[in-house]
Simulated assay, not measured.
Amino acid sequence: MAYWEMIFYWVALIVYSLSCGGFLYSFIFKNPKVMPRMFALLAVGALAHTVAIGARFQATGHLPWSGHYEYALMGGWFIICGTLWVGWRNKQLQGLAVATLPLVIIMMGYGYMQNPGLTPKAASLKTIWLYIHVYFAWLAFGAYSLAMAAGVLYLKKKKNSLQPVPNPSYDRFPSLEHLDELIFRYVVFGFITDTIMMAAGSLWAKDLWGGYWNWDPVETWSLISWLTYGITIHLRVTFGWKENRLAWLVICALSTVIICFFGVNLVVNTSLHMFQVR
């Protein structure tokens, strides 16, 4: 890691942890007044995170698109920016951070435990298809993460509404109907960007390996993830899956994306994808 990258990386991780603790406190102790301050703190962490990415770019000469550490660094940034964006546009959605922040903290910690050393970009990664492929991959992961967070918020609010005396602090969040619709919209956006990601990756694979599809472990899990969310959309549109079933489905479906990005090489070390190499 570059010197300034290391400093701002840890600043971002510490600020994220403090903000996450504040959001959890807000939910557990039913004190929504804390949430706007934690959301502002989250923005500070995102700024430090951005500086860390800039420092790494300056040190390596390329954006952090390869290797587990860089993948976690950039992926976490996309999720945080997505959380800030929706929370800034609609203050009722600031509570999504209670689910996205733990995910980002674990991702960044896992990435750091791999190999955060500065390495030159591999020759196979010096192509415009890399940026198109990975950009849409992170848009998809960000959207799926927001869908998961909206599902968590939906289940929490639904549980509160069934209490004999509902906690009025949950009135701060969007209605159950609006959260249900947001889950679906996030999934649709993620599915579309996921599709573009796979198409771009196939074109890149044709140039790199001579075939559009090679049944590489990462490609296979990417297909499983894509099918999972495609089935989710089908169940919603055709069979009317909503509310609790949809919320639980998107929460569980995110595991397929995490396995694709970070879990495959725990059991397989023959992936052709350079970003999966330690």
Rank of each mutant, 00 (worst) to 15 (best):
A2N: 15
Y3K: 14
W4G: 12
W4E: 10
W10G: 02
L13M: 07
L13F: 04
I14V: 12
V15C: 03
Y16K: 04
S17C: 06
G22K: 10
L24Q: 08
F29I: 03
K30S: 08
P32M: 04
P32C: 05
K33H: 14
V34D: 04
M35H: 09
R37D: 09
M38N: 12
M38V: 01
A40T: 14
A40G: 05
A40R: 15
L41S: 10
L42P: 08
A43H: 06
G45E: 12
H49R: 10
H49Y: 03
H49F: 04
T50R: 12
T50V: 08
V51A: 10
I53C: 10
I53M: 13
Q58V: 13
T60K: 14
G61I: 12
H62K: 15
L63E: 14
G67F: 10
E70C: 12
A72V: 08
A72C: 15
G76Q: 11
T83V: 08
R89P: 03
K91L: 02
Q92F: 06
T100P: 06
M107E: 11
M113E: 12
P116G: 07
L118A: 12
A122C: 11
L125K: 11
W129T: 06
Y131M: 11
I132W: 07
H133Y: 09
L146C: 02
M148C: 10
K156Q: 06
K156H: 05
K157P: 01
K157Y: 00
K157E: 00
K159V: 01
S161C: 04
S161R: 13
D171I: 00
R172H: 08
L176Q: 05
H178P: 04
H178V: 15
I183Y: 02
F184L: 08
R185H: 05
V188T: 11
T195L: 09
M197G: 07
A199R: 03
G201L: 10
G201E: 10
L203K: 05
K206S: 03
D207R: 12
D207T: 04
G211M: 10
Y212D: 00
Y212V: 00
W215V: 00
W215D: 04
P217A: 00
V218W: 04
V218Y: 02
T220H: 01
W221N: 01
L227V: 13
Y229L: 01
Y229P: 03
G230T: 02
I233A: 02
H234A: 00
T238H: 11
K242I: 00
K242V: 00
E243L: 06
A247H: 07
W248F: 07
A253H: 09
L254E: 07
V264A: 00
V264H: 02
V267T: 00
N269A: 06
F275E: 05
V277C: 01
R278G: 12
R278C: 01
